[in-house]
Design a binder for these strands. Structure first.
Lengths: 138, 138
DNA sequence: TTGACAAACGCAACTAAGTTGCATTAAGAT
DNA sequence: ATCTTAATGCAACTTAGTTGCGTTTGTCAA
């Protein structure tokens, strides 16, 4: 992760306060964040930024492969440190947890190739349901 | 599927031309459609409708369990006949194909319950990559 | 067949998320 | 210290979806 900041530097990027804070934020929190959440977090740390800046910063980090987009179907983009994760999304309180899942994508990739001549590059797998607290209420 | 139209009737719904065409469209096409695509298709069949109507109609069908939402992460809602599907989404031409996948959700559900006290209700699993035509170009 | 009632509809105005163009500010190298 | 260029803010815009309200149209019963 630190080498990614190095990479940024190498191709002419500047080490701004915003960029440092943003990477820090992702590393500490390790969960998908929306643009709004990111701006709130940065503002709370004394760095209020425009939403345009957030999107541009994210685009830069995504282009370098540091950050990736996640998608929970609420038509809101979310972002997290790159790496293959899956999540448990609570439909009650919207809280998100990581979950480790071993699953055999190879089989499906071969199937798609053989039957549909389709080359799978990536997949998304997300789980929706109720967290402990919300299950109690229901 | 026909019994779903019956069900609609039973609780006071009217059999409008739009509704008939819409259900027909879903049954014939069997792939996730966006609001825009739906309106184009209806217009092509001589029934131009307002987007508000489309969304309301979809809400009614979803409420009855006839239709479900799908999500390909392009912050656009899509809709298809209810039932558990997975898709191959071409990132080149955006074409979508169904794919049949057997996979063991039971294991993961038990895991989520045991480790995180999380009750999984549903999941989404979508594959992104290149279809035959687009793979050639790349 | 007709008339009444509720569902369906269209329209216009609105919200929320994300994007773009342009002028200004500020890293950081020389 | 200065200069170059990345980073930033702002305002205006786009796209997807929602809401309120007045009008139209199925449907059912008389």
């Amino acid at each position: 992760m630190a080498n990614c900041l190095d990479q940024l530097k190498r191709d002419g990027a500047k080490m701004t306060k915003t960029r440092r804070l943003l990477v820090e934020l992702f590393e500490r929190c390790r969960l998908p964040l929306s643009e709004t959440e990111i701006r709130q977090a940065l503002a709370a740390r004394g760095r209020p930024v425009n939403k345009t800046t957030v999107y541009r910063e994210l685009a830069a980090l995504i282009a370098r492969g540091l950050v990736q987009q996640v998608d929970f179907g609420d038509r809101k983009l979310r972002f997290e440190l790159a790496g293959h994760h899956h999540h448990l999304v609570c439909t009650g309180c919207r809280k998100v947890q990581d979950i480790h899942v071993r699953h055999d994508t190879g089989r499906i990739e071969r199937l798609a190739k053989a039957q549909k001549h389709f080359i799978i590059r990536r997949h998304s797998l997300e789980f929706f349901g109720l967290c402990q607290a919300c299950a109690k209420d229901a």
